[in-house]
């Protein structure tokens, strides 16, 4: 046992073992922009969850004489829309469907895309080639076009909107998952795991997932911003969410005719989309640098 005591190279030893995520958290908190973005995004989510408590009025109840009241009207701090409904309340309630429509497709696509990409990356060879060539076909459509094509064919509706956006985001996520998995698969600890006699499923579960899900997840969060814009865009076109539901894209659509009467009122829903989108974007950037993932 003399060997142990005379080990000279103990330079790297810290006092306490540190998990990976603790370091990520520490680096993230040092990034002021990212923390601010996280606060805005978190605020939006809280607003959506607690909308009934936060909103001053019923977002569905309109008063005809209040139609298109300007910003700053009494009792209507942000004015009233074309049917005389309180704009502030509708914007607050709008967070629910808008966030739901923006975030859900990315989450579902994250699950499905990761599964496809990890399978392709781990299997390698011709299985990989077939999967990736099929994905290439979807890649050949600009994302806006694909989303509009699918939901245009399926018709309006929340479910159709979610479905088309999910289809749009699966290929890019799967592609990232494949490339991350392929690079992890070449590392010697995977070889060591293979040499242990473990099944492919066990190796993926124990050794691959933990090392690839982080980067894939960060990439997926960067898509939330795009997804928010696209989801609202679908509703703006009359696809996706339908009236009288409060949703920012749809509100932008119905208020579009009012830009000559109350121009700045009509632009309000877009501010919400923009704020959410940019905060998710910066949040994702901060997460990426905190996790030290090369782009």
């Amino acid at each position: 046992m003399a060997v142990a005591q005379t080990d000279f190279d103990t330079l790297a030893t810290a006092d306490k073992p540190q998990g990976y995520w603790r370091g990520v958290g520490r680096r993230f908190l040092r990034d002021k922009v990212a923390v601010a973005a996280a606060c805005v995004a978190g605020g939006m989510i809280l607003m959506a969850v607690f909308a009934p408590w936060v909103a001053p009025q019923d977002p569905f109840q309109g008063t005809m004489i209040r139609r298109l009241s300007p910003i700053g009207s009494e009792g209507y701090p942000l004015g009233a829309d074309e049917l005389g409904r309180d704009m502030l309340s509708r914007l607050i309630y709008g967070a629910r469907l808008s966030l739901f429509m923006g975030v859900t497709p990315v989450l579902i696509a994250f699950l499905i895309g990761s599964a496809i990409g990890i399978a392709a990356g781990y299997a390698g060879g011709w299985v990989n080639s077939i999967i990736m060539r099929v994905l290439d076909v979807f890649y050949a459509f600009p994302s806006v076009l694909l989303a509009i094509a699918i939901s245009g064919a399926l018709g309006a509706g929340i479910l159709n909107g979610l479905l088309s956006l999910t289809v749009v985001f699966i290929p890019p996520i799967a592609r990232v998952a494949e490339s991350v998995t392929t690079s992890v698969r070449k590392l010697e600890y995977i070889e060591a795991a293979v040499a242990s006699g473990a099944s492919a499923f066990t190796i993926v579960r124990v050794h691959v997932l933990g090392n690839v899900l982080g980067p894939i997840f960060v990439y997926a969060t960067s898509l939330i911003s795009v997804s928010m814009i696209l989801a609202a865009g679908l509703s703006f076109l009359g696809l996706g969410v339908s009236p009288p539901n409060p949703e920012w894209g749809l509100m932008l659509n119905t208020l579009r005719n009012a830009i000559y009467v109350q121009p700045w009122l009509a632009a309000l829903p877009g501010v919400m989309i923009f704020l959410t989108s940019i905060s998710f974007n910066m949040l994702s950037d901060g997460l990426r640098s905190a996790m030290d993932i090369k782009q």
Partner: peptide, 15 residues
Amino acid sequence: QMVFQDSYASLNPRM
């Protein structure tokens, strides 16, 4: 069994 050259790459960084 086998022991590899790169002591770092042959250990799962999350384990």
